[in-house]
C-alpha cells in the first residue's frame, strides 16, 4: 500500500528530489504530543505534554534523563524514542568511563546526527519516527538541540516539536528576547505557556499530563512530575490564553480540521517564521 510510486523504500528518490519515506517519518514526529525546549545563558528547560491512551492507562513517559547534566524529550513514536534515549545514555556513560567527566553536548549531537542519517541512506532500513529535544549544560553553557528523522540536528535558542507545535513556536518567537536572562522558573513559565498554546480550547495543562525538566549551572538534570509540576502550573494559571494567531489554532478559535495525510510536508526549517503548517492534525500515537 503506497501513496505513490516513489515511496517504496527509503533509498528511492522522487523526481522532485524528496525521499518520501523520510518525509513520512517526519510526519510521525509531527503527530506525537508536543514538547518544548528553551534555554537561557545558564539553564535549559524542557516541558512535554504526556498522552494516555485511555482512562485506565498511565501517561507515556516523554522525558528521559541521560546523565547528571543532560536529558532528552521525545515526540513521535515513543518506542523509537526510547531506543535513541538509551543510545544517548550509553554514549554519556561511555564518555564518563573514558574521561571521568560529563560528555560535551556537542559530542551527543554528532553521534545522534550520524545515527539518524544512516537510516535514511541504506536499503532495508527505516528512519526513526521521532524528533528529540536534547537539553544540556556543559563548559560551553546551556544547550537546546533539536533533531528530526531526516537527521537534521540543530542547536536552538528555543524550539518545539510535535502536534500543533507551530503554535508553541509562534509564542517562542514572540518572546525570544526574554529568554537569555530568564531565571529557571521564568524559563519554565515561558515553556509552559508556549506548550499550552498547542492545546485546543477545551483542553488544559494539568499536573498529570505535564512533565517539566530543568538543568543548568549548579542544577543537575531534574525531571518533575505530578505534585512537583503543580506549583509551576499554578504560576501561569493567571495568564490568559493567547487568542488564535495565524497557524496557531489555540485559544478561542475552533480546532482546525485535520490536515490531509501525506501531503507534502513543509521543509524542515529551524525557528522558521510562523506559517500555517500541515502539522496541526492531532493524531494519536
Amino acid at each position: 500500500m503506497f501513496r505513490n510510486q516513489y515511496d517504496s523504500d527509503v533509498t528511492v528518490w522522487s523526481p522532485q528530489g524528496r525521499l518520501h519515506q523520510v518525509d513520512y517519518a517526519v510526519e510521525a514526529m509531527k503527530q506525537g504530543s508536543a514538547t518544548v525546549g528553551i534555554r537561557s545563558n545558564t539553564h535549559a528547560v524542557l516541558v512535554a505534554l504526556k498522552r494516555a491512551a485511555n482512562e485506565l492507562c498511565s501517561h507515556q513517559k516523554k522525558i528521559y534523563e541521560l546523565d547528571t547534566h543532560c536529558g532528552v524529550s521525545i515526540a513521535g513514536l515513543l518506542s523509537d524514542g526510547r531506543i535513541l534515549a538509551r543510545n544517548l545514555q550509553t554514549e554519556c556513560a561511555s564518555w564518563r568511563w573514558d574521561y571521568k567527566q560529563p560528555v560535551p553536548v556537542a559530542v551527543l549531537n554528532e553521534r545522534m546526527q550520524l545515527k539518524l542519517q544512516a537510516n535514511t541512506q541504506y536499503y532495508g532500513r527505516r528512519p526513526f519516527g521521532v524528533g528529540l529535544i536534547i537539553a544540556g549544560y556543559d563548559k560551553d553553557g546551556a544547550h537546546i538541540v533539536r533533531t528530526d528523522p531526516s537527521a537534521e540536528v540543530a542547536e536552538m535558542h528555543a524550539t518545539s516539536i510535535g502536534a500543533r507545535s507551530q503554535s508553541a513556536r509562534t509564542y517562542l518567537e514572540r518572546n525570544l528576547d526574554k529568554f537569555a536572562h530568564s531565571s529557571p522558573d521564568e524559563l519554565i513559565a515561558h515553556a509552559l505557556l508556549s506548550l499550552r498554546d498547542t492545546l485546543p480550547a477545551e483542553d488544559n495543562l494539568s499536573a498529570k499530563n505535564t512533565t517539566i525538566a530543568v538543568v543548568g549551572k549548579g542544577t543537575p538534570f531534574k525531571i518533575m512530575e505530578n505534585d512537583e509540576v503543580a506549583p509551576h502550573l499554578a504560576a501561569i494559571a493567571g495568564v490568559a490564553r493567547t487568542t488564535a494567531v495565524a497557524g496557531g489554532g489555540a485559544g478561542g478559535a475552533p480546532p482546525p480540521p485535520p490536515a490531509p495525510q501525506g501531503g507534502a510536508p513543509a521543509p524542515a526549517a529551524p525557528a522558521a517564521p510562523a506559517a500555517p503548517a500541515a502539522d496541526d492534525n492531532r493524531m494519536e500515537e
Binding site: D98, Y99, K100, Q101, P104, A106, V107, N109, E110
Partner: peptide, 17 residues
C-alpha cells in the same frame, strides 16, 4: 572534530586507564 579542546583532567583520566 566536535569542536572541543582536550582538557588536562580528561587527558589525565584517559592516560591513567
Amino acid at each position: 572534530v566536535v569542536g572541543q579542546k582536550l582538557n588536562p583532567s580528561a587527558l589525565y583520566a584517559f592516560l591513567t586507564s
